[in-house]
């Protein structure tokens, strides 16, 4: 047993058996992992199809990523480097607690750097830095069934998928056009995977949809409460639904990121004072930090520094 590693915190453990010795490696028992692994293989063989699985209780409330955690627990190994993001940020509550959980039960190395991670668990964003082959992205899925709001009965939606009966979804998008003049859906924008299944991309902004198409990384999806797993293998076609005269479009902003000046990333609105002041900043915190470290600065950078919104000097090594 290495005392040095133990001193680093609960993620230590000895070299032969990493992680908290009170739990099996990665929390789940081996039989559960086997069940999830079998489901993952079937999910990969039928891209976009939702495989039912025996979802387990996790030490976290439903809706906080229990599905994603179970998928991660079934694939993660001691050699992995793990990153967790919540709405693009590494430092929000959900991301911090899931990262600490896996640090504790596996002892794996964690990172905020997208490029260094082998497994990225995400809630509602895809990192701006393009993912590479051999990386795995695990999505936390609140509602795996894209047709659920249109048809509440599971037996019926299952038939609609079985017969590729997807007219309902086109009607939903058309209703947007008839009411607003454009497709007003901005997140959970439905996609067609491998030309066969309409699939929920999870509540990522539609800005991220194009990144899913022919992505070199393996995409795994876990829905804990709904007990579904699905997958999109690398280089698989993922098309956002649209119409010939109303093609799919992503969000655009008039201004660049206030902190790093990026014009190609997804921006969040941040309130800066109680007098109506606000700015737009990258939702992907690592991407923003990386750009600032490389010398880019946005129009609000100096102000943000002055009011303590960014601490770039401390985290200079990012």
């Amino acid at each position: 047993m290495s005392l040095l590693k133990d001193a680093e915190g609960p993620g230590g453990g000895d070299a032969a058996r990493p992680g908290d010795p009170h739990y099996n490696f990665a929390y789940l028992d081996e039989q559960t992992k086997r069940m999830i692994r079998r489901c993952l293989l079937k999910a990969i063989a039928v891209p976009g199809y939702q495989v039912p699985f025996g979802g387990r209780e996790m030490p976290l409330a439903y809706g906080w990523g229990t599905g994603g955690m179970q998928v991660t627990a079934a694939v993660i190994g001691p050699e992995d480097v793990f990153k967790v993001i919540d709405q693009g940020a590494d430092d929000t509550t959900n991301a911090v607690s899931i990262r600490r959980f896996f640090q504790r039960v596996t002892g794996v190395e964690t990172t905020e750097k997208t490029g260094d991670a082998t497994i990225i668990q995400t809630r509602h964003r895809i990192p701006e830095t393009p993912l590479k082959a051999d990386q795995i992205i695990v999505y936390q899925v609140p509602q795996p069934e894209p047709l659920r709001k249109l048809e509440p009965r599971e037996g019926e939606t299952r038939k609609l998928h079985a017969y590729s009966e997807y007219g309902l979804m086109q009607v939903r998008l058309y209703e947007d056009i008839s009411q607003f003049g454009h497709i007003a859906t901005t997140y959970s924008y439905p996609v067609m995977v491998n030309g066969r299944y309409i699939t929920s991309p999870t509540p990522i902004p539609k800005f991220d949809n194009p990144k899913m198409d022919r992505m070199p990384a393996l995409q795994l999806f876990g829905a804990g409460r709904e007990r579904r797993i699905y997958a999109i293998p690398p280089y698989t076609s993922v098309k956002s639904l649209d119409f010939d005269d109303h093609p799919f479009e992503v969000q655009r902003w008039d201004k660049p990121c206030g902190l790093c000046g990026a014009t190609d990333s997804y921006l969040d609105e941040v309130i800066t004072d109680d007098k109506g002041g606000k700015m737009f900043v990258c939702s992907d915190t690592h991407y923003c930090e990386m750009r600032r470290a490389a010398g880019h600065a946005g129009p609000a950078y100096e102000t943000a520094k002055a009011i303590d919104l960014v601490h770039d000097d401390e985290g200079a090594d990012r």
Partner: peptide, 13 residues
């Protein structure tokens, strides 16, 4: 099993 599974999953993917 974990190491083997990752190779099997890569093979399937």
């Amino acid at each position: 099993a974990q190491t083997a599974f990752r190779a099997i999953m890569r093979a399937m993917a």
